[in-house]
Each structure stands twice: as C-alpha cells, then as structure tokens.
C-alpha cells in the first residue's frame, strides 16, 4: 500500500495527585472545558465547539478510509499493467524470445521501479554521508548496480519488443534511472563474480530487491551476461610493439 494511515498520537495521561495534596491549579490553556468556557464567554457555543472537534475526527478517519480503499484499487492496477505489458511483448516477439523475457523479468522485480530506484539512490547518499567508506563504497556500487540492471532489463526488452509497451518501459525505467546508469559497469561485473558480501551490503540488496539467493541460483551469471551485452566494452590495450 502506498498510503499509510498516520499513527494516532498517544493520549496524554492525567497527572497523579498525591493523597492529601490540594488540586493543582487549573491551566486555562490546557483544560478543554475551561477553554470551551472561554470560547463561550467570547460568544461561541461551547457545545458546537465540541461537536466540531468530533466531526473533524470523524472526517479524518473517513478520509483515511477513502484513500486506503482507492490506493488498494490502484495497486491492483499495477498487476494489470504488468500482465498487459508482458503479454503484448510476448505476442510481438514470439515464443522463443518470450522465454528470454521471462528470464529477465524473473530476475529483476518490475513492480514500482520508480520507488525501487529511489530507495537505492537514497541509501547510496546516506551511506556516503555516514563516511563509512569501505561499506559505503560497496553499498553505493550496489545502488548503481540496481539502476544499471534495471535499465539493462529495459534495454533487453526495448531491443526485442514493439508497440505501445516500448514507451511504457522507456518512460518508467530509463527516464527515472538514467542518472545512475552511467556508473555501474565495474560494480555490475564485480557483483556477479563476488560472493563475499558484507552483511550491510547484503541487507541493502535484499531491501532493494536487487539480489536474492533464489534468483542467483535460478539465473546464474545473469548480471555478467547483461553487462557483457549492454555495457560498452573496455578499450583493448595496444599490442606490444605496435
């Protein structure tokens, strides 16, 4: 769900009065009844004031319920969009290429890529702010990997698809992820080859959905394959004596 109902503030507890002591002096600014009386003295109807507060509270709950319900409806539309896009792409490319699409879609979560990349970018920035350079460097590289691999998926699809599905992928993935895509070549390959990942980075990758054991086992080496396919190859060193 995209919208979360805000938590209600805790109720203020009444101060304890020690036995035998006198009542504390009333605070005109805090006592709701005295406050109401003050309002009444100013010409307001105290009962109306209380009713207004109750109505506001009811309104707030009513609005929260409406938003939650509508958000749920839209969340179900994500599934329809994804199913439509995948179906139209598969029809366009035929069964052989459709299988390749399944491979790519199966590895990288497609749902809500905007939020996916946004989280990666925020975590990347926060890591640098903490000055934890060793762990931070790894985390930032993984963030770039997320962006690059997501864009790589889009690139894979763009090369083989046709029709309206092309623009949805282009708009959603490339437009949003473009600012991170340029940096991830090295880290992408490292990520595919390195299996010694520190807990912080592993946690990061799990949170962003960039990595999972199941995916890794299901599609071994897919990161490297994507990198080889879509990243510009490194310039070859000049031959000796040339």
């Amino acid at each position: 769900m995209f919208w979360q109902k805000p938590e209600k503030p805790p109720k203020a507890e009444a101060p304890e009065i020690p036995p035998g002591s006198s009542q504390p002096e009333a605070n005109l600014n805090e006592d709701p009844i005295l406050k109401t009386e003050t309002r009444a003295a100013q010409g307001e109807d105290p009962q109306a004031g209380l009713e207004n507060i109750a109505a506001m509270k009811e309104n707030h709950e009513q609005r929260a319920n409406i938003m939650a319900e509508k958000s749920r409806e839209r969340a179900s539309m994500f599934g329809k969009v994804d199913a439509w896009m995948t179906s139209s792409v598969k029809k366009a490319v035929g069964p052989q290429l459709a299988e390749k699409i399944d491979d790519v879609l199966g590895w990288i979560p497609f749902y809500d890529p905007a939020k996916h990349l946004w989280k990666a970018e925020v975590m990347w920035q926060e890591t640098w702010k903490d000055k934890k350079l060793s762990a931070g460097e790894k985390a930032s590289r993984m963030a770039q990997s997320v962006a690059l691999s997501t864009a790589a998926k889009a690139e894979t699809m763009l090369t083989i698809m046709s029709g309206g599905a092309e623009s949805i992928v282009k708009k959603v993935l490339f437009k949003i992820g473009g600012n991170l895509v340029d940096h991830g070549a090295e880290s992408l390959i490292e990520a595919s080859e390195r299996r010694e990942i520190d807990p912080q980075t592993q946690n990061f990758m799990n949170k962003t959905g960039a990595w999972s054991k199941e995916n890794d086992e299901k599609h071994p080496g897919i990161l490297k394959k994507l990198a080889e396919k879509f990243l510009p190859s490194q310039p070859q060193p000049a031959a000796a004596g040339a």
């Binding site: 919208w3 958000s71 839209r74 599905a165 437009k175």
Partner: peptide, 27 residues
C-alpha cells in the same frame, strides 16, 4: 495523497491500454 505514487501513473498514463485508462480515471 502521496505524490510519489501519482508520478508513476502520470508518467505511464498515455501508454496504458484503454480499459486501464478508464479504470484509473474512474478511480
């Protein structure tokens, strides 16, 4: 409402099939 969610829908709206456009608009 949450602007982040709606930025997604605005970005993709014109590419959606008609039945989802109708459903989203109605929502």
């Amino acid at each position: 409402e949450d602007p982040e969610e709606f930025s997604f829908w605005l970005a993709v709206y014109e590419t959606l099939p008609d039945d989802i456009k109708v459903e989203l608009g109605s929502n």
